[in-house]
Amino acid sequence: MTLFEIIILAIIQGVTEFLPISSSGHLLLPAELLGWINQGLAFDVAVHVGSLLAVMIYFRKEIVQMSIAWVTKGFSKNQNTDSKLAWYVIIATIPAVIVGFLMKSWIEDNARTALVIAATTIIFGLLLWYADATAKRSNTLASLNWKQSLLIGIAQVLALIPGTSRSGITMTAGLMLGLNRESCARFSFLLSIPVILGAGLLATVDLLQAREAVDWEALLYGAGFSFVSAYLCIFLFLSWISRIGMLPFVIYRLLLGAVLLWFVFG
């Protein structure tokens, strides 16, 4: 890959990992529009590492507090908000881990098509709009319980279908459960940490098995630009989401879905 291709693909990964707009839909566009080749497993691992570092550094204070609380209070009757939130992230991660382990190969072989991605981009975009427009949006993370966390985790399973958007579907579920926009986004971002870590580890295993030639310079650039774009994305999204709502992302998803359908049927 050229440096320009590395930068563009890394920025796409960093931004779309956290915005509710579908990363898989965007990663199809360079290949369809410009004829770029697949970036390969090594680059995929690198940009995941960049995204993971961004979310962990941004939420470093929360992660430390949750970790300490989980170790010291997580197995006692005297739970606090941080220990509960740590448990909720664990609970919400379990469904995706189980279903992903059982169906990863089938999904990659049967669902990773432009038509599926176009359809899910549009359908789940409309569902996000409905949730944002009709939900009460009055609760914070302090009011979250384990049942609601499990429901968000079950919703996250749908993100295994390309085009759904992991952040989009978890925010949709959170809104439907009455969480306000910022709380939905924060829980979605915290929930992304074990998911990105797991995806990165799986990609690393595949990379080691494939024994792919490694371009370390490309990997460093990829991880770096993914980190910067992801960090800025998280910061700006949390700063703006309470004011702008989900409608701009819904409109964008509909336009992206239309472009993908044009590639399929045009």
Rank of each mutant, 00 (worst) to 15 (best):
K136N: 12
K136T: 15
K136F: 02
R137K: 15
R137H: 13
R137Y: 02
R137G: 04
R137W: 00
S138I: 13
N139Q: 14
N139I: 02
T140Y: 04
T140F: 08
T140K: 07
L141S: 09
L141T: 05
L141M: 09
A142Y: 12
A142Q: 14
S143E: 15
S143W: 00
S143Y: 03
S143P: 01
S143R: 04
L144H: 03
L144A: 06
L144P: 01
N145A: 09
N145Q: 12
K147I: 14
Q148R: 14
Q148N: 14
S149I: 09
S149F: 06
S149G: 08
S149K: 09
S149P: 02
L150A: 13
L150T: 09
L151Y: 04
L151I: 13
L151K: 01
L151C: 07
I152P: 02
I154S: 05
I154Y: 03
I154D: 03
I154G: 07
A155S: 13
A155V: 08
Q156N: 08
Q156K: 12
V157I: 14
V157W: 02
L158F: 15
L158Q: 06
L158D: 01
L158R: 02
L158Y: 00
A159P: 05
A159C: 05
L160M: 14
I161V: 15
I161H: 08
P162C: 13
P162K: 07
P162L: 11
P162T: 11
P162F: 10
P162I: 09
G163S: 13
T164P: 03
T164M: 11
T164A: 07
S165K: 02
S165I: 10
S165D: 09
R166M: 07
R166E: 02
S167I: 05
S167Y: 04
S167N: 11
S167V: 06
I169R: 00
I169C: 01
I169K: 00
I169V: 15
I169N: 00
T170A: 12
T170Y: 03
T170I: 09
T170Q: 10
T170R: 08
M171G: 00
M171H: 02
M171R: 00
